[in-house]
C-alpha cells in the first residue's frame, strides 16, 4: 500500500519546525505504524538523508515511550491504544497521514517527533512513592488489602506515562497522569501515612511544570492506552481538598 506521510521535522528545541511530505510505497497492512516509519527511514538513508527521529522501545504497548499525534489524534485513529499497537490496516491505500509530536508547553520538542516528558518524572519525584527503605518491610500478608481495593489501585497504577492524556487535552492538563499515581498509592494502606503530603506536593509540581488545568472534557480517557477513567481526577481533587482543608 501507499501512504503520503506529512511529518513534522524540527532540528532541535531551539529551531522552528515544519511539515515535510514523504510518499511511501510498498507498505503492507500488517505493518505496525512504527514499522512503516522504520521503512520510511530506511528509504531516507538510501537517499542519504537524515532519518526522522521518533520514539519507541518495547513495541508492545507497555513502556509508554512511543507517542505521536496522528491525523489529529494522540496515538492515531483508535481509542485506548499506543502508537506501537497501531497497524497500517487502519489506513486506506493512498491516504495522507499527518504525524506531529505531542503538543504541550510542558513537553518541549527535542527533535522531529521526540518530546521531553521529564516533567512527569519530576511530578513522581514529589511523592509518587512510599518512603520506606529497602530492608525494613514486615511480612507481606501482615497487611491485608481487599480484592476490590487492590483492583482499583491496580486500575490506576496501570498508567504507562505516555503523555497521551496531556497531548490530547485542550488545556494540556496532566491531571489524569497525576491522579493515577496519587490514587494508586493513596488508596492502599501502605500509602496512607504520606497520603496528604503526596497529593499536595504532586499536584503543586504538576502546576509548576506548566500543565494546564482540568476542565473535565474527558478527552484524556478516550486516548489513555490503559483506559484509566477520568473519575480518577475527581477523586484526586477530593483528596486534595481534604488534605488542604483538613490537613489529612
Amino acid at each position: 500500500m501507499k501512504i503520503v506521510f506529512k511529518i513534522w521535522r524540527q532540528v532541535n528545541s531551539k529551531s522552528q519546525g515544519g511539515f515535510e511530505t514523504y510518499e511511501v510505497d510498498g507498505l503492507t497492512e500488517d505493518m505496525s505504524f512504527l514499522e512503516a516509519l522504520d521503512y520510511l527511514n530506511e528509504r531516507l538513508v538510501q537517499r542519504n538523508e537524515k532519518v526522522i527521529a521518533y520514539e519507541y522501545d518495547c513495541r508492545e504497548g507497555i513502556c509508554g515511550q512511543c507517542g505521536v499525534f496522528i491525523n489529529g489524534r494522540a496515538h492515531g485513529p483508535h481509542d485506548n491504544i499506543t502508537t506501537c499497537q497501531l497497524h497500517m490496516r487502519s489506513f486506506k491505500d493512498g491516504e495522507t497521514v499527518v504525524v506531529e509530536p505531542w503538543r504541550a508547553a510542558a513537553f518541549p520538542v527535542i527533535k522531529d517527533l521526540v518530546v521531553d516528558r521529564s516533567a512527569f518524572d519530576r511530578i513522581i519525584e514529589q511523592g509518587g512513592y512510599i518512603s520506606a527503605r529497602t530492608g525494613t518491610a514486615a511480612e507481606a500478608n501482615a497487611i491485608l488489602v481487599g480484592k476490590e481495593v487492590v483492583d482499583r489501585a491496580m486500575d490506576a497504577a496501570a498508567c504507562i506515562g505516555c503523555g497521551a492524556c496531556v497531548a490530547t487535552c485542550k488545556n494540556a492538563s496532566a491531571a489524569l497522569f497525576t491522579a493515577a499515581k496519587i490514587n494508586h498509592l493513596n488508596s492502599l494502606p501502605q500509602g496512607k501515612p504520606e497520603a496528604s503530603n503526596r497529593v499536595l506536593e504532586m499536584t503543586r509540581q504538576m502546576e509548576l511544570e506548566g500543565f494546564g488545568s482540568c476542565t473535565f472534557t474527558g478527552a484524556c480517557e478516550v486516548e489513555c492506552p490503559e483506559e484509566i477513567p477520568m473519575i480518577n481526577i475527581a477523586e484526586m481533587n477530593a483528596r486534595r481538598v481534604k488534605a488542604k482543608w483538613l490537613g489529612k
Binding site: 512513592y129 512510599i130 520506606a132 529497602t134 530492608g135 525494613t136 518491610a137 514486615a138 511480612e139 507481606a140 497487611i143 487492590v150 489501585a153 491496580m154 497504577a157 494508586h184 498509592l185 492502599l188 501502605q190 500509602g191
Partner: peptide
Amino acid sequence: IDHYVQQGVPF
C-alpha cells in the same frame, strides 16, 4: 515480596 508490598505494588 515483603519489600514490594511495602512499596505499594498492587499484587
